[in-house]
Protein backbone atom coordinates (compact mmCIF):
# COMPACT_ATOMS: atom_id res chain seq x y z
CA UNK A 1 0.00 0.00 0.00
CA UNK A 2 2.53 2.48 1.22
CA UNK A 3 5.05 1.09 -1.24
CA UNK A 4 2.69 1.58 -4.21
CA UNK A 5 2.18 5.20 -3.22
CA UNK A 6 5.93 5.69 -2.95
CA UNK A 7 6.55 4.22 -6.35
CA UNK A 8 3.91 6.44 -7.90
CA UNK A 9 5.47 9.56 -6.46
CA UNK A 10 9.12 8.77 -6.57
CA UNK A 11 9.28 6.38 -9.48
CA UNK A 12 12.77 7.25 -10.63
CA UNK A 13 14.51 6.91 -7.29
CA UNK A 14 12.46 3.83 -6.40
CA UNK A 15 13.42 2.09 -9.64
CA UNK A 16 17.05 2.88 -9.10
CA UNK A 17 16.87 1.51 -5.59
CA UNK A 18 15.43 -1.74 -6.84
CA UNK A 19 18.23 -2.04 -9.36
CA UNK A 20 21.08 -1.22 -7.00
CA UNK A 21 21.27 0.11 -3.47
CA UNK A 22 24.17 2.33 -4.42
CA UNK A 23 22.75 3.64 -7.68
CA UNK A 24 20.24 6.12 -6.31
CA UNK A 25 22.10 9.22 -5.37
CA UNK A 26 24.96 8.73 -7.77
CA UNK A 27 26.88 5.83 -6.30
CA UNK A 28 30.05 4.85 -8.06
CA UNK A 29 32.07 7.85 -7.04
CA UNK A 30 30.36 10.59 -9.06
CA UNK A 31 28.50 12.15 -6.23
CA UNK A 32 29.18 15.78 -6.78
CA UNK A 33 32.30 15.82 -4.66
CA UNK A 34 30.73 14.44 -1.47
CA UNK A 35 33.41 12.76 0.58
CA UNK A 36 32.15 9.18 0.48
CA UNK A 37 34.46 6.42 1.73
CA UNK A 38 36.49 5.09 -1.23
CA UNK A 39 39.78 3.20 -1.72
CA UNK A 40 38.29 0.03 -3.13
CA UNK A 41 36.14 -0.70 -0.12
CA UNK A 42 32.42 -0.94 -0.68
CA UNK A 43 30.54 2.16 0.50
CA UNK A 44 28.64 1.54 3.71
CA UNK A 45 24.92 1.23 3.37
CA UNK A 46 22.91 4.20 4.53
CA UNK A 47 21.83 2.24 7.58
CA UNK A 48 25.48 1.57 8.45
CA UNK A 49 26.47 5.18 7.77
CA UNK A 50 23.69 6.54 9.97
CA UNK A 51 24.64 4.15 12.76
CA UNK A 52 28.25 5.29 12.47
CA UNK A 53 27.25 8.96 12.62
CA UNK A 54 25.11 8.30 15.67
CA UNK A 55 27.88 6.40 17.42
CA UNK A 56 30.36 9.20 16.73
CA UNK A 57 27.87 11.78 17.98
CA UNK A 58 27.65 13.57 14.63
CA UNK A 59 23.93 12.76 14.54
CA UNK A 60 21.89 12.64 17.74
CA UNK A 61 20.51 9.27 18.84
CA UNK A 62 16.83 10.06 19.16
CA UNK A 63 13.81 8.25 20.47
CA UNK A 64 11.34 7.26 17.76
CA UNK A 65 8.56 5.74 19.76
CA UNK A 66 5.08 6.07 18.36
CA UNK A 67 3.71 8.45 20.97
CA UNK A 68 4.21 12.21 20.81
CA UNK A 69 5.70 12.58 24.28
CA UNK A 70 8.19 9.70 24.31
CA UNK A 71 10.18 8.71 27.40
CA UNK A 72 10.53 11.35 30.12
CA UNK A 73 11.87 9.52 33.15
CA UNK A 74 12.27 12.53 35.43
CA UNK A 75 8.96 14.06 34.35
CA UNK A 76 10.43 17.49 33.58
CA UNK A 77 8.57 17.77 30.28
CA UNK A 78 11.64 17.08 28.15
CA UNK A 79 12.26 13.74 26.43
CA UNK A 80 15.17 11.83 27.92
CA UNK A 81 17.06 11.70 24.60
CA UNK A 82 16.66 15.45 24.04
CA UNK A 83 17.89 16.09 27.57
CA UNK A 84 20.90 13.87 26.81
CA UNK A 85 21.67 16.00 23.73
CA UNK A 86 21.63 19.14 25.89
CA UNK A 87 23.90 17.57 28.50
CA UNK A 88 26.31 16.42 25.81
CA UNK A 89 26.44 19.71 23.90
CA UNK A 90 26.57 22.31 26.67
CA UNK A 91 28.63 22.39 29.83
CA UNK A 92 28.08 25.96 31.00
CA UNK A 93 25.24 25.87 33.52
CA UNK A 94 23.60 29.05 32.18
CA UNK A 95 23.58 27.61 28.68
CA UNK A 96 22.18 24.31 29.93
CA UNK A 97 19.39 26.12 31.78
CA UNK A 98 18.50 28.21 28.73
CA UNK A 99 18.50 25.13 26.48
CA UNK A 100 16.35 23.23 28.98
CA UNK A 101 13.88 26.14 29.17
CA UNK A 102 13.51 26.11 25.39
CA UNK A 103 13.37 22.30 25.06
CA UNK A 104 10.53 22.21 27.57
CA UNK A 105 8.41 24.65 25.56
CA UNK A 106 9.26 22.93 22.27
CA UNK A 107 7.86 19.75 23.82
CA UNK A 108 4.87 21.59 25.30
CA UNK A 109 3.96 22.82 21.83
CA UNK A 110 3.50 19.21 20.70
CA UNK A 111 1.34 18.28 23.67
CA UNK A 112 -0.86 21.35 24.18
CA UNK A 113 -4.60 20.99 23.65
CA UNK A 114 -4.90 22.91 20.39
CA UNK A 115 -8.63 23.29 20.95
CA UNK A 116 -7.93 25.43 24.02
CA UNK A 117 -6.90 28.93 22.83
CA UNK A 118 -5.86 30.05 26.33
CA UNK A 119 -3.55 27.05 26.72
CA UNK A 120 -2.07 27.64 23.25
CA UNK A 121 -1.50 31.31 24.08
CA UNK A 122 0.18 30.40 27.35
CA UNK A 123 2.60 28.09 25.53
CA UNK A 124 3.29 30.84 22.98
CA UNK A 125 4.15 33.35 25.71
CA UNK A 126 6.45 30.80 27.37
CA UNK A 127 8.07 30.09 24.00
CA UNK A 128 8.81 33.75 23.31
CA UNK A 129 10.36 34.03 26.77
CA UNK A 130 12.48 30.94 26.13
CA UNK A 131 13.68 32.21 22.75
CA UNK A 132 14.52 35.58 24.28
CA UNK A 133 16.47 33.76 27.00
CA UNK A 134 18.44 31.89 24.30
CA UNK A 135 19.20 35.23 22.60
CA UNK A 136 20.51 36.64 25.89
CA UNK A 137 22.51 33.50 26.66
CA UNK A 138 23.96 32.56 23.27
CA UNK A 139 23.77 35.78 21.24
CA UNK A 140 22.86 36.30 17.60
CA UNK A 141 26.27 36.36 15.92
CA UNK A 142 28.10 33.65 17.81
CA UNK A 143 28.70 29.95 17.22
CA UNK A 144 26.43 28.41 18.19
CA UNK A 145 23.98 31.28 17.89
CA UNK A 146 20.65 31.30 19.70
CA UNK A 147 18.92 30.12 16.52
CA UNK A 148 21.41 27.25 16.04
CA UNK A 149 20.52 26.01 19.51
CA UNK A 150 16.78 26.55 19.09
CA UNK A 151 16.53 25.02 15.64
CA UNK A 152 18.52 22.01 16.70
CA UNK A 153 16.40 21.37 19.80
CA UNK A 154 13.21 21.99 17.86
CA UNK A 155 14.30 19.50 15.19
CA UNK A 156 15.27 16.89 17.79
CA UNK A 157 11.91 17.32 19.53
CA UNK A 158 9.74 17.11 16.39
CA UNK A 159 11.74 14.16 15.07
CA UNK A 160 9.03 11.83 13.81
CA UNK A 161 6.12 12.29 11.44
CA UNK A 162 3.66 12.10 14.30
CA UNK A 163 5.57 14.69 16.31
CA UNK A 164 5.96 16.97 13.28
CA UNK A 165 2.22 16.76 12.71
CA UNK A 166 1.64 17.71 16.34
CA UNK A 167 3.89 20.72 15.82
CA UNK A 168 1.92 21.69 12.70
CA UNK A 169 -1.32 21.42 14.67
CA UNK A 170 0.15 23.92 17.12
CA UNK A 171 1.18 26.18 14.21
CA UNK A 172 -2.36 26.10 12.87
CA UNK A 173 -3.77 26.89 16.29
CA UNK A 174 -1.50 29.94 16.30
CA UNK A 175 -2.91 31.21 12.98
CA UNK A 176 -3.69 34.90 13.40
CA UNK A 177 -1.91 35.21 16.75
CA UNK A 178 0.35 38.04 17.84
CA UNK A 179 3.65 36.85 19.30
CA UNK A 180 5.52 39.55 21.18
CA UNK A 181 9.25 39.41 21.69
CA UNK A 182 9.73 40.07 25.39
CA UNK A 183 12.15 42.59 26.81
CA UNK A 184 14.45 42.09 29.77
CA UNK A 185 15.73 38.89 31.27
CA UNK A 186 13.25 36.09 30.65
CA UNK A 187 15.47 33.20 31.73
CA UNK A 188 13.85 31.02 34.38
Amino acid sequence: MKREHKRGTLALCGALLLASLSACGGGGGNNGGDSAPTSGKASPTTTEAVAGLETSGTLPKLDRSADVMGPDTDGDGIRDDVKAVITKNYSDSTQVKAAVQFAAVAQAQLLVDTGNPAAVKAVAVRTAAAVNCLVLTFGTNTTPSFSDVARSLEADTANTKQRKQAQLAYSKAMDGAVISLPEGNTCE
Binding site: G25, G27, A36, L59, T160
Partner: peptide, 30 residues
Protein backbone atom coordinates in the same frame (compact mmCIF):
# COMPACT_ATOMS: atom_id res chain seq x y z
CA UNK B 1 10.64 8.83 9.98
CA UNK B 2 13.79 10.93 10.53
CA UNK B 3 11.90 14.19 10.67
CA UNK B 4 14.73 15.95 12.48
CA UNK B 5 16.05 16.45 8.95
CA UNK B 6 12.95 18.36 7.83
CA UNK B 7 14.11 21.97 8.23
CA UNK B 8 17.63 21.35 6.99
CA UNK B 9 16.33 19.44 3.96
CA UNK B 10 13.89 22.16 2.86
CA UNK B 11 16.67 24.74 3.21
CA UNK B 12 19.21 22.43 1.53
CA UNK B 13 21.82 23.15 4.19
CA UNK B 14 22.64 22.17 7.74
CA UNK B 15 25.07 20.14 9.81
CA UNK B 16 23.01 16.93 10.01
CA UNK B 17 22.07 17.05 6.34
CA UNK B 18 25.61 17.70 5.15
CA UNK B 19 27.10 14.99 7.39
CA UNK B 20 24.58 12.50 6.12
CA UNK B 21 25.14 13.32 2.47
CA UNK B 22 28.89 12.97 2.96
CA UNK B 23 28.77 9.68 4.84
CA UNK B 24 25.94 8.09 2.89
CA UNK B 25 26.02 9.26 -0.72
CA UNK B 26 22.93 7.23 -1.50
CA UNK B 27 20.92 9.78 0.45
CA UNK B 28 22.11 12.81 -1.50
CA UNK B 29 19.70 12.71 -4.41
CA UNK B 30 16.59 12.13 -2.38
Amino acid sequence: NRFELFDEAIRGDGPMLNALKAAAPATATA
